[in-house]
Design a protein around this nucleic acid. Structure first.
Length: 575
DNA sequence: CCAGGCTAAACAAG
DNA sequence: CTTGTTTAGCCTGG
C-alpha cells in the first residue's frame, strides 16, 4: 500500500500500466487486507462481510453469536446500571428485588422524566451516542430488543410497545377494588418502567443506527486503492475509444454516477458506475410501451458515425441498442488485452453495462461501463409531471436541470424479442437521468448552505444509506426480494424529500425518526404497489416485483422497525 | 485544455 | 466535542 499517495499527475499512463500488471502477484504475497486490518481498526471495519455478501458464510456466525447473548441478562443488568441512560432491555427479571426496582425507578425519573408517552423526538442523543461508540464494546449494543410481551407481564400488565394503559385497566375490570388498588400501585411502577424502557428502546435504536452508519463508512485507504485502479482503466478505455474506433470516437467526458460518486456508497468502494456518452443530435424518439421509460431512437437523416447500428423498420430506421452495445463490448474487450488484471463479466440480458472486475489487495472491485446516448434537446413529454422539486429545491433549480441533456442507455425489459409496433425490445433504449439524480443528491438542501461547513447538516443522505443497507440485508436474508434494488430506496428518498421539503424536517440530530419516517413512506409505496419513477411518473418501479413481494417486504421492514432493527444489531455483533 | 482552487468526507489530534 | 490535515472528485478561469 505504500506509495499510493503520490500525486496522480506525476504518473504517465504507461508507467501505471506496467505497475498494475504486476499487482496480481503482489496481492498473492501480501496478506489479505482483512488480516492486515485486524491490527487496528477491527471494531469499526466490516471485515467479515468483506468478500461477498451473497455468500452464506456469515450465517454460520449468527447462531453462535446468539448463544452468547443468552443467559447473560442478569449480569448484563448489573453492568447496565452503571451506564447512564442505558437501562435493561431484557428486563428486570421477575425476581427483581424491591431495592433494585426502586433504584430503577429513580433512575428512570432522574435520567429522563419523560413527559410525553411516545417521545418521537430524541433530542441531544448524539452526545450520548458518540460517547457510547467510543467506549462501549459493540457486543453490549446488540442485545435482543424487548419482545412485545416482555417481562412486564410479571406485573400483571400487558406491556405494549407504546404502553397503552387503558387496555390494562379493562383487562382488570373484573377484579375487586382492592385488587385494582394494588394493581394501580403496580401500574405506577410499571408505568415508570415502561416509559423508561421506551426511552431505552428508542435510544438503543438511535445508537444502533449511528453505529451501523459508522460501519458503513468506507475507509479512506480503500477509496485510494480502488479509485486509482478504476480511474486508470477508465482513462485507458476512453483513450482507446477515441483513438482506435470510429463509431465511439465522439465519446464525451464520462458521467460518474451511482452510489460511489454520489457519496452514498456503503461498506466498500467496490462498485463504480460510469456512463460513457456518445452525443447524438437530432434524433426521433418514439415511446416503446406505455410508461414512457423506454424509447426507440431514430437518427435523423445525415451522415453519422452511428449509421452502422441502424436497423430498418417499416418506413424509418432506428438505432439498435443491442448492436451498439455488442460493438462497445468488443471494443472494451479489445482494450482489456493491455490490462490483464481486469476481466469482463458475461453479458446479462437487457443489462446496459459492460462490467469489468478486478481485485485490489484481494478485494474484488467492479466497474460498470455504461454506453449511452446523450441527447441535448428538451426532455420527452413523459417527464412533464416529474421532478416535482419546486417546493424543495426551487423552480429555478428545476429549470436549470431541465435545460440539461438527458441520456439513453441500452437497457430493455423482459424478452428481447417482445415487439411493439414491429420493433423488438432488444433494440430500444431506457431513458436515464442519473446525472440529475447525482446533482440533486449533491445539492439536496432547501437552504443552499445545507450540509456545507458553514451551514446546518441534515440526515437525508444518511437516511438513504440506512435504507439501502437495510434493503441489502433483507435481500441477503430473503433472496425472493431480488427484484428490489437500491434505486427503489433512492426514489423513495427523492419523493419523500419533495413532501418534507424543509431542511428542519431532516435535522441531523433526528436521524432515527427521519429514517423511520422514510421507511414508513417506503412501506406505503410497497403496500400501494406503486412507486413512481421520479422523472417519469407514469413508470411504476414496483410493477416488476409484484404486489405479493411488495407486501412481504413491507412486513419485513415493519418488523425491523418494531424490534429496533435486529438485522442491524446482528451485524454489529460481528465486529 | 489543464492547473489550481474548492468541497465533502475520512481521519487524527487535542 | 472541535480543529486541522489529507484525499478524491469537481469546477472554473486564464
Amino acid at each position: 500500500m505504500t506509495g499510493r499517495g503520490r500525486p496522480r499527475k506525476e504518473k504517465s499512463p504507461d508507467s501505471k500500466l506496467s505497475k498494475s500488471r504486476t499487482r496480481p502477484q503482489q496481492t498473492k504475497t501480501s496478506p489479505p487486507r482483512r488480516a492486515a486490518r485486524t491490527e487496528k481498526e477491527t471494531k469499526t471495519t466490516n471485515g467479515p462481510k468483506k468478500q461477498d455478501p451473497q455468500k452464506p458464510d456469515h450465517t454460520e456466525e449468527k447462531p453462535s453469536a446468539q448463544k452468547t447473548r443468552k443467559g447473560k441478562t442478569t449480569n448484563h443488568f448489573m453492568e447496565e446500571t452503571n451506564v447512564q441512560c442505558r437501562t435493561p432491555r431484557d428486563s428486570p427479571a421477575p425476581k427483581t428485588s424491591s431495592t433494585q426496582r426502586s433504584a430503577l425507578e429513580t433512575k428512570a425519573t432522574r435520567s429522563s422524566t419523560p413527559k410525553e408517552k411516545s417521545s418521537q423526538k430524541t433530542k441531544e442523543k448524539e452526545s450520548t451516542c458518540q460517547a457510547t461508540f467510543q467506549k462501549e464494546p459493540a457486543k453490549k449494543l446488540v442485545t435482543q430488543p424487548r419482545t412485545p410481551q416482555g417481562p412486564a407481564e410479571t406485573y400483571g400488565v400487558r406491556a405494549k410497545a407504546n404502553g397503552c394503559l387503558s387496555d390494562e385497566i379493562t383487562a382488570k375490570q373484573t377484579k375487586t377494588l382492592k385488587d385494582i388498588r394494588r394493581v394501580s400501585v403496580h401500574e405506577k411502577a410499571t408505568n415508570a418502567l415502561t416509559k423508561m424502557k421506551q426511552v431505552s428502546f428508542e435510544e438503543k435504536v438511535d445508537t444502533t443506527l449511528h453505529m451501523t452508519l459508522k460501519n458503513l463508512k468506507i475507509k479512506k485507504k480503500d477509496i485510494s486503492c480502488a479509485s486509482e485502479v478504476v480511474n486508470e482503466i477508465q482513462r485507458h478505455v476512453i483513450k482507446h475509444l477515441k483513438q482506435n474506433t470510429i463509431c465511439f470516437k465522439d465519446v464525451e467526458e464520462p458521467l460518474r454516477t451511482g452510489s460511489y460518486y454520489e457519496n452514498l456508497k456503503i461498506s466498500n468502494p467496490d462498485e463504480f458506475d460510469v456512463m460513457l456518452p456518445i452525443p447524438v443530435d437530432r434524433v426521433n424518439i418514439e415511446p416503446f410501451g406505455s410508461d414512457g421509460a423506454f424509447y426507440s431512437v431514430g437518427l435523423k437523416r445525415g451522415k453519422s458515425s452511428l449509421q452502422k447500428f441502424e436497423e430498418e423498420f417499416e418506413d424509418n430506421s432506428i438505432l439498435s441498442a443491442t448492436k451498439m452495445l455488442e460493438e462497445f463490448r468488443k471494443e472494451v474487450k479489445e482494450c482489456l488485452k493491455e490490462c490483464k488484471e481486469w476481466t469482463m463479466t458475461k453479458k446479462k440480458r437487457g443489462c446496459p453495462a459492460v462490467t469489468l472486475t478486478t481485485t485490489v489487495q484481494a478485494v474484488p472491485i467492479s466497474l460498470d461501463l455504461v454506453l449511452c446516448l446523450g441527447v441535448k434537446s428538451s426532455w420527452p413529454s413523459f417527464t412533464k409531471d416529474g421532478l416535482k422539486i419546486e417546493h424543495w429545491l426551487g423552480s429555478k433549480v428545476k429549470q436549470e436541470y431541465k435545460r440539461k441533456s438527458y441520456y439513453f442507455v441500452p437497457k430493455y425489459e423482459g424478452r428481447g424479442t417482445a415487439e411493439n409496433d414491429g420493433i423488438p425490445a432488444k433494440d430500444v433504449w431506457r431513458i436515464s437521468f442519473s446525472h440529475i439524480e447525482k446533482a440533486i443528491i449533491k445539492n439536496h438542501g432547501s437552504e443552499k448552505t445545507c450540509c456545507e461547513k458553514a451551514g446546518t447538516s441534515c440526515c437525508r443522505k444518511d437516511c438513504l444509506k440506512l435504507v439501502k443497507h437495510l434493503l441489502h440485508l433483507l435481500k441477503e436474508k430473503n433472496p425472493s426480494f431480488d427484484k428490489f434494488c437500491s434505486y427503489h430506496a433512492k426514489t423513495t428518498l427523492l419523493t419523500s424529500c419533495c413532501s418534507r421539503t424543509s431542511d428542519t424536517d431532516w435535522k441531523a440530530s433526528d436521524l432515527s425518526p427521519c429514517f423511520q419516517l422514510l421507511l414508513d413512506d417506503f412501506c406505503k409505496h410497497l403496500r400501494n404497489g406503486q412507486l413512481c419513477n421520479f422523472f417519469i411518473p407514469s413508470q411504476n418501479l414496483l410493477s416488476g416485483p409484484g404486489a405479493k413481494m411488495c407486501g412481504n417486504l413491507a412486513d419485513c421492514i415493519k418488523e425491523q422497525c418494531e424490534k429496533g432493527f435486529p438485522i442491524f444489531q446482528q451485524e454489529l455483533k460481528m465486529y
